[in-house]
């Protein structure tokens, strides 16, 4: 017994080292799962308030470009209102003939505006922190867009803050499609350049041209269909390839991102429950 204790004492530093490295690895692996604890991420109150404070200083120097961005966004919102009013008028007219006119279920959305308080583009796994949280109605898995296109998906939410997994993170595989041909595939970032991402799984028989627009596919309840993601920058196809190698120039400029909108889908829970029930039913049989 004494000898065992002596042995442990002699190598105490090494045991401590191995123990701490073990803890680190466990944390690292657990962190890769989709949900993580809020306390040890930048959504916790202490770190987030620190970031808020620092971004309040840097904001001052960005006022000019931010104003320009807000103006552009206002214009876009006005266009949207216009468009919606037009649709309303048309719907009313149609309603004269149809008994129960109603908005399509997947279109019952609203947007929660939020401000980016921490953002990175130069890591392999980038994250964005925003200044809205559970109290503002934000929940994990909601989609996030900017005035120019898709941004990412909400990962963690605390009371006042939320963390987004942006397109610049290889763990996010956003389902997109080609606007012209409707073929869809996942968009995955390779970790090298914040301006470009790769689109996978587009079979070789599909016609792809440089400059084609890529939009969200609407196949998940996170993003509605048709939000801009980017344009095809390079498209390669070797004789032996099953799929096209497509490099997509992203619509959103992540290095200057300041304001974003979180999409709240009123019917999302209903859709997910229905889909879950269907898979459970088919598993039983």
């Amino acid at each position: 017994m004494h000898k065992i204790l002596q042995f442990f004492y002699k190598f105490r530093v090494m045991f401590l080292f191995i123990l701490l490295e073990g803890i680190s690895l466990v944390l690292l692996v657990r962190n890769n799962k989709y949900q993580q604890t809020v306390y040890l991420s930048s959504a916790n109150d202490f770190t987030a308030r620190m970031y808020e404070w620092s971004s309040s200083i840097t904001d001052f120097f960005k006022l000019k470009s931010t104003n320009a961005q807000l103006a552009a966004e206002n214009a876009q919102l006005l266009n949207q209102i216009n468009d919606l009013e037009n649709r309303l008028v048309m719907a009313e007219e149609r309603a004269n003939g149809i008994e129960n006119p109603r908005l399509p279920s997947e279109n019952q959305l609203d947007y929660i505006p939020a401000k980016v308080i921490n953002n990175s583009t130069n890591h392999l796994k980038n994250y964005i922190t925003i200044n809205k949280g559970a109290l503002d109605g934000i929940e994990p898995d909601m989609g996030v867009v900017s005035s120019s296109g898709a941004v990412g998906i909400i990962k963690n939410v605390s009371e006042h803050f939320a963390v987004i997994v942006p397109l610049l993170n290889p763990t996010l595989k956003l389902n997109c499609k080609l606007k012209t041909s409707n073929y869809s595939g996942p968009l995955v970032w390779d970790g090298t350049d914040a301006r470009y991402s790769d689109m996978k799984d587009i079979a070789r028989h599909v016609q792809v041209q440089v400059g084609d627009t890529i939009i969200t596919s609407g196949l998940s309840s996170t993003f509605p269909e048709g939000i801009a993601v980017g344009t095809v920058k390079i498209c390669e196809l070797d004789d032996s390839d099953m799929f096209h190698k497509i490099k997509v120039e992203l619509a959103t400029n992540f290095s200057t991102l300041t304001y974003v909108q979180v999409i709240r889908n009123a019917n999302k829970k209903e859709q997910q429950q229905l889909e879950q029930r269907s898979t459970q039913d088919s598993n039983k049989k």
């Binding site: 701490l20 490295e21 803890i23 680190s24 690895l25 466990v26 944390l27 690292l28 692996v29 657990r30 962190n31 993580q36 040890l40 991420s41 930048s42 916790n44 770190t47 620190m50 970031y51 990175s120 890591h123 796994k125 994250y127 963390v163």
Partner: peptide, 12 residues
């Protein structure tokens, strides 16, 4: 790690 959302990486 807490600041950069990379729990475990810098610890290691």
């Amino acid at each position: 790690d807490m600041f950069s959302n990379t729990l475990g990486l810098h610890c290691f």
